[in-house]
């Protein structure tokens, strides 16, 4: 049943993305159908997560499948929030693909607990993983907004009035989404990293700098700290903030790929 619910959620998210793609191709504003698809997808996804929690008496935070599902859900909350506000609804064009990949990965890998649960329990661990996921989801929203900002900005400067001009939101709306993503994502990631460190201390260990998850967390935290500092500097802010956010995203994604390729067995984090 957990798998079925995840498959239904995947289909609904896919529908929402197809609507986004069609809107982009035709330069059409998105209607309520897209919001409904995302909302219904989230509802079904939440039911799947709830069923998992009831079945295994733990949140789906450990193991590639469960963790991917939870992270996809966290991003989905941002997509839904953006969809409800019609001025940034098209942000789903960029946010839905990572959700689809994560959920697809969860379904392929199996949404069942990994064999490490006993160690990965306790409030510190739950706080650590859930806030890190909210952090990553917020930063994903900020990154999507910044990529769209840069594209819309270039379109306006280059006077190309095609699909990007018509479909993408206005610059201030994208700047606002970037700001909200950072405002939610960065503190959540900070709390998550601190909680993770505290959690390792309970085992009598220090900061596990050899752990790929820790490395990625620190790299992401540093990259987006730079993005926040760039936002705070005086002068015309929008383009600068967006460009730095895009760079932060590229750095984070490159670090993720590099770690995933090189970490081997220990790269289980995602």
């Amino acid at each position: 049943m957990i798998l079925v619910l995840h498959l239904i959620a995947l289909a609904l998210y896919l529908t929402a993305w197809v609507l986004q793609l069609r809107g982009f191709r035709q330069g059409k504003a998105l209607g309520e159908l897209e919001v409904t698809a995302v909302g219904a997808g989230l509802g079904v996804h939440a039911a799947g997560i709830l069923l998992y929690a009831l079945a295994y008496r733990s949140l789906p935070l450990v193991g590639i499948g469960p963790a991917s599902s939870s992270l996809a859900f966290a991003i989905g909350l941002f997509v839904f929030a953006a969809s409800v506000r019609s001025d940034v609804r098209s942000a789903g064009l960029f946010l839905l693909p990572p959700m689809l990949l994560l959920l697809g990965e969860a379904i392929l890998m199996g949404i069942e607990p990994a064999g490490r649960q006993i160690a990965f329990r306790g409030p510190w661990f739950v706080l650590h993983v859930s806030t890190v996921f909210v952090g990553y989801a917020g930063l994903a929203a900020a990154s999507a907004a910044s990529i769209m900002y840069v594209l819309q900005f270039r379109t306006l400067k280059r006077k190309e009035f095609g699909s990007v001009f018509r479909f993408f939101p206005a610059l201030p709306a994208l700047d606002r989404l970037n700001k909200i993503g950072l405002a939610v994502g960065f503190p959540a990631l900070t709390i998550g990293l601190i909680a993770g460190w505290s959690w390792t201390l309970t085992f009598g260990r220090g900061l596990a700098l050899e752990d790929p998850g820790t490395i990625l967390g620190i790299v992401t935290w540093g990259a987006y700290l730079v993005a926040i500092v760039a936002r705070m500097r005086p002068g015309p802010r929008g383009e600068r903030a967006a460009v730095v956010s895009v760079i932060a995203f590229v750095v984070t994604f490159a670090a993720f790929l590099a770690l995933r390729i090189t970490a081997g067995e220990t790269g289980f984090f995602l």
């Binding site: 001025d87 819309q152 306006l156 001009f165 206005a170 610059l171 201030p172 709306a173």
Partner: peptide, 9 residues
């Protein structure tokens, strides 16, 4: 239309 894309409102 251009003004709205640049300034939002």
């Amino acid at each position: 239309q251009l003004a709205i894309k640049v300034f939002g409102s």
